[in-house]
Simulated assay, not measured.
Amino acid sequence: METMEHRSHVDTCFDCAAACEHCATACLKEEQVQMMADCIRLCRECADFCTMCGRLTARDSQFMRQFMVLCADVCQACADECGKHDHEHCKACAEACRKCADECRHMGASA
């Protein structure tokens, strides 16, 4: 791994993935689970994207910068959806997703 910035990005990606997995699991336990369908779907997708982005960054992949841009879009979509809900797990997920989206945009642009 090249720099401390890369290490920070990997940690941010994996932290976001964990927040997304937690949110999706908690949403499945909500009384009105059908209302949470989009949130669950986006959280699962975001967790997958963040995990892959962290892995690509950790191995200093030649494709990591392009993937960071895409990951930022997915994180932003997930943050927007989670932001619609008052559940604490959704609020925490939205915050983690916004942080990851910002970092992915920054890292992806520094190519």
Rank of each mutant, 00 (worst) to 15 (best):
C82N: 05
M68R: 15
C39Y: 03
R44D: 02
T57D: 12
M107S: 12
S8M: 14
Q66C: 02
C53G: 10
E81S: 06
C90P: 01
K91I: 05
E30R: 01
D86M: 01
A19T: 14
Q34Y: 01
T51G: 15
R59E: 05
F14Q: 10
C46P: 06
A17K: 11
Q34L: 07
A92Y: 05
R55C: 11
C82D: 03
M64V: 07
E21T: 13
M64R: 14
R98C: 04
I40V: 01
G108K: 10
H22R: 15
R98A: 03
C43H: 03
G54M: 05
C71G: 02
A37F: 10
D86G: 07
A19Y: 12
V10K: 13
M64S: 13
T3R: 15
E88C: 06
R44G: 02
S8W: 09
T12D: 11
A19W: 04
C75G: 02
C20N: 09
H85V: 03
E88Y: 02
L70G: 14
M35W: 06
C93P: 07
E21W: 15
M35S: 08
G83N: 04
L28A: 10
D60R: 08
M64T: 12
T51C: 11
F63L: 09
A37K: 15
A19N: 13
L28Q: 12
A101C: 08
A17E: 11
A17S: 13
A58F: 13
R59C: 07
M1G: 15
C53L: 01
C23A: 01
M35D: 11
E81G: 03
R105N: 10
F14E: 10
M36I: 00
C23N: 02
I40S: 04
E95A: 14
Q76I: 12
A79S: 06
A96K: 01
Q66A: 11
C82R: 00
D102C: 11
A94C: 07
T51H: 15
C23T: 02
M1Q: 15
C71Q: 05
I40W: 00
D73I: 09
C23S: 01
E5V: 05
M4P: 13
H87K: 08
H87I: 02
C97F: 09
F63E: 09
K29E: 02
G54W: 10
M1P: 12
H6Y: 12
R105P: 11
L28E: 13
K91Y: 06
M36P: 04
R105H: 13
L28D: 11
V74S: 00
C53W: 04
A37M: 14
E45G: 04
H85T: 03
D11E: 08
